[in-house]
């Protein structure tokens, strides 16, 4: 059932996100090419002593500069749009898809509320990752465009020899880098899920209000964040002593691992609490307008 729910969720999101992904990649390619050409013109101008050259090149060069400027602005705009849209879609798919008129369809399907919430969480998580990957690709394209010796750079980036050198060095400096990498990846995953479900739980709590539900959701979000930082502060004070001891006994290593694992556990607890709050409210207190 979750698979089927996700299928329709992705179809709905894909309509908006795929065009913006294509736009981001297209704009970065055009901007990168135009910057690359600019650099070339500049080189010609500097290296050539011929006045004739400069006069001939001047007009197209200026046009080129304007074009590059406009494209850079456009690039900035589509990147902002990518992040804003991803965020808005995540909010909207939960709010409009479950708590407004579409809720009449979703909550009368023969599925349990936890399946609905899980499918929303999975799709939101996947699109966040996709948007992240797309922005990385676009930054990569821009980098290639800006760099003057781009072919050497590319060759270096994809050379097996360099990478193996890198890992050999890494093994020497941080023998346990694999464990760190694993911990950090797990932390990023559970941490982003926790913030995702904090948003969902806030919207569910806002739904309990008779009116001004959106405003109440925002208030709920702020209150939860305050509670979290308050608890975090208390924990911080108490754990500071133990951590200090750890620092004395063993160097940074154990301390860092303890910190990462501790953060992972906290995020998992947050995930579970927010999920349960959302599920309980939508099962027991649902009241669509």
């Amino acid at each position: 059932m979750i698979k089927k729910l996700c299928k329709y969720e992705f179809r709905s999101i894909g309509r908006t996100l795929i065009p913006i992904y294509i736009a981001v990649i297209a704009v970065s390619i055009i901007t990168a090419i135009s910057i690359a050409m600019n650099v070339n013109y500049a080189n010609i101008n500097y290296s050539s002593n011929s006045v004739q050259w400069a006069i001939e090149m001047n007009v197209p060069y200026k046009l080129q500069q304007v074009f590059t400027f406009v494209m850079s602005l456009t690039y900035f705009a589509v990147m902002v749009a990518l992040f804003v849209l991803t965020f808005v879609i995540i909010l909207q798919r939960f709010y409009k898809g479950l708590l407004c008129d579409e809720g009449y369809l979703m909550f009368t399907l023969p599925v349990k509320p936890w399946q609905l919430i899980t499918s929303k969480g999975i799709t939101a998580f996947v699109i966040s990752i996709l948007s992240g990957i797309v922005s990385c690709i676009s930054i990569f394209i821009m980098m290639i465009g800006v760099a003057e010796d781009r072919w050497t750079l590319l060759a270096q980036m994809f050379s097996f020899k360099n990478w193996s050198m890198f890992f050999i060095r890494l093994n020497e400096v941080i023998p346990l880098w694999g464990l760190y990498a694993l911990e950090i990846i797990v932390y990023i995953i559970v941490g982003s899920l926790a913030s995702l479900y904090q948003v969902y739980a806030s919207m569910a709590i806002g739904h309990l209000a008779k009116k001004n539900r959106i405003l109440m959701s925002v208030v709920a979000y702020i209150v939860i964040s305050m509670i979290l930082s308050f608890i975090g502060g208390i924990f911080g004070v108490f754990s500071a002593f133990t951590m200090q001891n750890l620092m004395y006994i063993n160097a940074g290593e154990a301390f860092l691992h303890a910190l990462l694992i501790f953060s992972i556990i906290i995020s998992i607890i947050e995930c579970v609490v927010f999920f349960v709050i959302t599920e309980r409210i939508l099962s027991k207190k649902l009241n669509l307008e």
């Binding site: 709905s12 309509r15 898809g97 008129d101 009449y104 009368t108 023969p110 599925v111 349990k112």
Partner: peptide, 19 residues
Amino acid sequence: TQTKSVISYLPDRMFIADW
């Protein structure tokens, strides 16, 4: 869920996404 699978419900509003 068992009763939902045997109930066909038409609400008093549009409940399908317009896309």
